[in-house]
Design a protein around this nucleic acid. Structure first.
Length: 293
DNA sequence: CACCAGGATGTTT
DNA sequence: AAACATCATGGT
């Protein structure tokens, strides 16, 4: 059992971070211990105040995965630009964006299109049982996220077991391309946001939204501002003049210009707080800035 | 049983 | 460039 003691200037909320819908393979046990599979390992981690206790990974891995050394207070103050995101920030204190493995993130968000989070988790779980490696450890057995090669080599009848629906051919085709293009993961970080996005969007099943999610969650391109139906609804209904934000690009450009270099973080706080921000209660509606033309 | 979900793609205006 | 149909599945 290892542990990390967080400094006062390192806000972090494990529950929020793992339950907000950015990652799909973590489960919370009765005792508050989270169990998840990253790479080949099963990690178990819990939090009590400023102390993180974990096993299955070393300290450096945990710091990197949860981005504990990112200056969250600085990021928060840079995106805290209107009452709406301010309310989301205050309700989601300690939420951090996880640094996900690139291929798993890409494949997961291809599968995630037009589905709700429980359904996404189910499909990914099936995919791992079907094509991942089975690993036996001290506390049980688990399945790794399948490699691009494993999915590319799979048969159609086995993919259909995973209930991916119309997404199956997208995933398989992209797996084939990625399996043949082993330089992609090293290439993306060197590209600027626009070029990296264009590069990802060559892949089947990867449009603007999936590309933005991969750039944000796997490559740390914090200006990426993914727009799903929740984000669009929040922007349209809670910002004055928001009705004019009709297309994906209008929403995403508004996010980037309004929230700045860490727009992706603003997006994640709004998404995490979506239930409150799309509900009937409107105590915190006093938005401030107009979307740009 | 309707309606909707971390959308993408191809076609039509 | 913007609007539309279509895609397959499951959650609520």
């Amino acid at each position: 059992m290892h542990s990390i003691t967080l400094r006062p200037d390192q806000p972090f909320d494990l529950d929020l971070t793992l339950s907000c819908g950015q990652v799909f393979r973590w489960e919370r046990g009765e005792t508050g211990v989270w169990s998840g599979i990253v790479g080949d390992s099963q990690i178990r981690i819990s939090q009590q105040g400023r102390t993180l206790m974990f096993e299955g990974a070393d300290t450096r891995f945990i710091r990197t995965y949860f981005q504990l050394d990112e200056d969250l207070p600085g990021i928060i103050s840079s995106i805290d630009r209107d009452p709406l995101v301010h309310a989301a920030i205050s309700r989601c204190r300690g939420l951090r964006i996880v640094r996900q493995p690139a291929w798993e993130c890409l494949a997961s968000y291809i599968i995630a299109t037009c589905a709700n989070i429980p359904g996404i988790r189910r499909r990914i779980s099936l995919l791992c049982r079907c094509f991942g490696d089975r690993i036996t450890g001290e506390c049980g057995e688990w399945y790794t996220f399948p490699s691009a090669e494993a999915i590319a080599a799979s048969e159609a009848c086995r993919i259909s077991e995973c209930r991916l629906g119309y997404r199956a051919p997208y995933l398989k085709e992209t797996a084939r391309v990625i399996a043949e293009d082993r330089g992609w993961e090293a290439r993306i970080p060197g590209l600027c946001y626009d070029d990296a996005r264009r590069d990802l969007m060559r892949l089947k099943g990867v449009g603007r939204k999936v590309a933005d999610c991969v750039l944000l969650f796997a490559f740390g391109k914090m200006e990426a501002f993914p727009v799903d139906v929740w984000i669009q609804r929040i922007l349209q209904t809670r910002y004055p003049g928001g009705e004019s934000l009709r297309t994906y690009d209008q929403c995403s450009r508004f996010g980037r210009s309004h929230y700045g270099r860490y727009a992706g973080y603003a997006q994640e706080y709004l998404f995490c707080d979506r239930a409150a921000l799309t509900g009937e209660s409107r105590e915190d509606q006093v938005p401030v800035s107009q979307p740009e033309r």
